[in-house]
Amino acid sequence: TAAIRKMIYTTNAVEGYHRQVRKITKTKGVFPTNHALYKLVYLAYRNIRKKWTMPLANWGQTAQQLAIKFGDRFKIM
């Protein structure tokens, strides 16, 4: 339905996460080791996670529609 589609397209967390990690890593030239890159991405993740506090818009309506469409795989708490 429209509410489900809107939620998926407006809250693409993967793209948002990638954009923020890319913003941090693009300013660094070369990483001496893979471990250095992993550490930078982990530290970036910790900072990004703190900013993601906003709840999803219209989640109640969307959750109800998901429960109707995928009743056996989606449970409303």
Rank of each mutant, 00 (worst) to 15 (best):
T10I: 08
T10S: 13
T10P: 03
T10C: 10
T10M: 09
T10Y: 09
N12E: 10
N12Q: 14
N12M: 14
A13S: 15
A13T: 14
A13M: 15
A13F: 15
A13E: 11
A13H: 15
A13D: 11
V14T: 14
V14R: 12
V14G: 07
V14W: 05
V14C: 12
V14I: 15
V14E: 09
E15D: 15
G16A: 12
G16I: 06
Y17N: 07
Y17S: 05
Y17Q: 04
H18M: 12
H18I: 13
H18D: 09
H18K: 15
H18Q: 13
H18T: 09
H18W: 14
R19W: 05
R19V: 01
R19C: 07
Q20K: 15
Q20E: 15
V21S: 08
V21Q: 10
V21Y: 02
V21H: 05
R22P: 00
R22V: 08
R22T: 14
R22C: 07
R22A: 08
R22H: 07
K23W: 10
K23S: 10
K23R: 12
K23D: 08
K23I: 08
I24S: 02
I24K: 02
I24D: 02
I24Y: 01
I24G: 00
I24A: 06
T25G: 02
T25H: 02
T25N: 06
K26E: 10
K26T: 11
K26R: 13
K26F: 07
K28D: 02
K28W: 11
G29W: 10
G29T: 13
V30A: 12
V30G: 08
V30M: 13
F31W: 14
F31L: 11
F31Y: 15
F31N: 10
P32E: 13
P32H: 13
T33Q: 04
T33R: 03
N34P: 02
N34H: 06
N34C: 10
N34A: 10
N34G: 13
N34S: 10
N34M: 11
H35W: 00
H35C: 06
H35A: 11
H35M: 04
H35S: 11
H35V: 07
A36V: 12
A36H: 09
A36M: 10
A36R: 06
L37R: 04
L37E: 03
Y38F: 04
K39I: 07
K39Y: 04
L40M: 07
L40C: 03
L40Y: 00
V41Q: 00
V41G: 01
V41M: 04
V41P: 03
Y42W: 04
Y42L: 06
Y42E: 02
Y42V: 02
Y42I: 01
Y42A: 03
L43F: 04
L43D: 03
A44N: 01
A44L: 00
A44F: 00
A44H: 01
Y45W: 02
Y45L: 01
R46M: 09
R46C: 08
R46H: 05
R46N: 08
R46G: 02
N47E: 03
N47I: 00
I48E: 02
I48N: 03
R49Q: 12
R49F: 09
R49K: 14
R49W: 11
R49L: 10
R49D: 07
R49G: 03
K50Y: 14
K50W: 12
K50R: 13
K51M: 05
K51G: 05
W52M: 11
T53R: 08
